[in-house]
Simulated assay, not measured.
Amino acid sequence: MTAPIAESNAPKPIHTDDAGLIAGAVTVPAPAGDLPGYRAHPASGGPFPLVLVIQEIFGVHEHIRDVVRRFAKRGYYALAPDLFVRQGDPSRLGTIDEFRALAGRVPDQQVLSDIDASVAFAGASGKADVSKAAVIGFCWGGRITWLYAAHNPSLKAAVAWYGRLTGDRTETHPKHPIDVASALQVPVLGLYAGQDQGIPLPTVTELQGALRAASAPGAARSAIHVYPDAPHAFYADYRPSYRPEAAADAWQRQLGWFAQHGVA
């Protein structure tokens, strides 16, 4: 799949090659049926610290696969499972409303189970060290990152890139990050944008307050960084929202977060 909703004023996307890597499509066995995914890791050595890369609302497209390779170049086993596959195929969609409708049909509990299966798959490969595991996610995947950090206390760390923090509570999406933040056992770094029209800064401030007031060890060690002038999706180098300076700084903060919490 190529990058979605391409626009004439979008920047030229970053391309990370696979030299020195084992990279490509994989099939993850899962309780609800096989799950496609994309993984990359160094061609020699290992086992490597594990990073689960959780997709944007647009699916596991080329930008997400490139992020997987970026981690592999840094010495990680990185895996991006296709978490929409049971409800639909994002590559066949064209409008943001269609993407949102698809995402709205994907139950959180199914997603958490599929990520559990992805961790097990990576561990069974012999190339991933699941005792040094982290999860990161962008936009839709940023919200899921918070939820998975609350779901799996065995993680070492998590990084949520501009994930939505609250919203309507439904049977499909019964909880949001604001509901689970105070009980986190895993430290989460939140990377947010001051000009994000979809994630109001008051909700970020509310989350910061919940984390500060919490006694749970992961909540107490979590942190939020806001880029005041950046818009939503400032890391998405295939979109006009891309902000290279903020993106580079956030990437380095993420790597530092991993090193600080033993995912290196």
Rank of each mutant, 00 (worst) to 15 (best):
D82C: 11
L102S: 07
L83I: 04
A124Q: 07
P107N: 10
R92H: 14
R92E: 15
S113Y: 03
D89I: 09
R105M: 14
I96W: 15
L112R: 08
S125H: 06
A120R: 11
A124K: 12
D116M: 05
A128E: 01
L79Q: 01
D82P: 04
Q110A: 10
V106L: 05
A120H: 08
D116Q: 10
R100A: 15
D114Y: 01
R105E: 11
R105P: 01
D108M: 15
G94S: 15
S125A: 12
D82K: 09
P107C: 03
D129L: 03
R105C: 05
Y77T: 00
V130Q: 09
V119K: 07
A128K: 01
D82W: 10
L79T: 02
A103I: 04
S125F: 04
A101L: 14
T95R: 15
V85M: 11
P81F: 05
G88H: 04
D97I: 07
Y77R: 01
D89P: 04
R105V: 14
G126F: 05
R105K: 10
A78N: 00
Q87N: 13
Q109Y: 04
Y77G: 00
V111S: 07
D82M: 08
G88P: 06
V119C: 02
A80T: 02
L83K: 03
S118Q: 07
L93R: 10
A103D: 13
S131C: 06
D108T: 15
A122N: 04
V130N: 02
A78D: 00
G126K: 09
A122E: 00
S118V: 09
P81W: 00
G88A: 03
V130S: 02
Q109H: 13
K132E: 06
G88I: 12
K132T: 09
A101V: 11
S125G: 00
A103S: 09
K127I: 04
S113V: 14
R92I: 09
A101P: 08
A78G: 00
G126E: 01
V106A: 08
P81H: 00
A101D: 15
F84W: 09
A122R: 05
A101M: 07
I115R: 02
G94I: 08
